[in-house]
Design a protein around this nucleic acid. Structure first.
Length: 235
DNA sequence: TCTTCACTGCAGGTAAAGCC
DNA sequence: GGCTTTACCTGCAGTGAAGA
């Protein structure tokens, strides 16, 4: 058996089964009901289910559901050692799955498929392996990602999560282990790092792209976060 | 489990000065 | 000219306590 990426739709195999290889199930759209190990529940896009080799599992999916399945002889160490069965995937991996879907649907190219598999594994190694989150917190995370270049205030996030601001802040820290502001800042700094590395945008534009209306505030925060100013980082 | 309230500390905006 | 640093100020985030 060799490692393989494939697209699946709703299950035509609603029987409990196991196989000799590992499998990662990553929904693209719609919900999947899955029973594996101690987990028995729904999995949605931006989540990944780990099915280890020889582990009995059963899954069914909504008719409109589509998902990527990765059959792997060996799991990356990070995932192999993970105590979680379902974990959140990053935005880059989520978007890469859409590329994989498009490529697999439209072309047959063993060389590209091998390259896709390699990139997929690299992206897997970058995952933070945060456990499946409360849907309300997940909605807030999506809102943050979609609005990272705008000023983001807790009361708006709390509305998205259908919680009071205080309850939202407490739940957020309980589930992610960091405060809302720490999470937003880390996203902004990573994006700023990428823009500084891959573009020639002036600092004012980069500051705006990552949600700072004040260049000085951006420069100060960047220096605190990375230990050197944006200009020195670029050099 | 959740909301409200009060308190503290910090992040971010502004302005000004200085550096390259 | 573009960027960084710093001081000051304000508003908001974080958190604990009390209560529904």
């Amino acid at each position: 058996m060799k490692d393989l990426l494939s697209i699946r739709s709703y299950s035509t195999r609603p029987k409990e089964h196991a196989h000799s290889y590992n499998q990662l199930v990553l929904p693209l759209q719609g919900m999947i009901n899955i029973r594996v190990g101690t987990f028995n529940g729904k999995v949605s896009p931006r989540e990944c289910v780990i099915v280890r080799s020889n582990e009995m599992h059963l899954f069914t999916a909504e008719k409109e559901a589509r998902f990527i399945v990765a059959d792997l002889k060996k799991l990356p160490d990070l995932i192999e050692d993970s105590p979680h069965i379902v974990f959140e995937i990053s935005k880059p991996l989520s978007q890469y799955l859409l590329f994989i879907e498009s490529q697999l649907e439209n072309e047959f190219s063993p060389a590209i498929e091998q390259a896709m598999l390699n990139t997929f594994k690299l992206l897997l190694c970058e995952q933070r392996l945060t456990p499946k989150l409360d849907i309300r917190i997940n909605n807030a995370l999506l809102y943050i990602e979609q609005n990272i270049s705008e000023p983001i205030i807790i009361s708006d996030l709390a509305k998205v999560a259908c919680l009071s601001p205080t309850q939202f802040k407490k739940n957020f820290k309980k589930q992610l282990g960091i405060t809302v502001l720490e999470y937003i800042t880390s996203l902004r700094m990573k994006k700023a790092q990428a823009l500084l590395t891959h573009t020639d945008y002036p600092l004012q534009i980069i500051a705006e792209q990552v949600g700072y209306t004040s260049l000085s505030a951006f420069s100060r925060k960047f220096s605190q976060y990375f230990g050197l100013s944006p200009t020195k980082f670029k050099q």
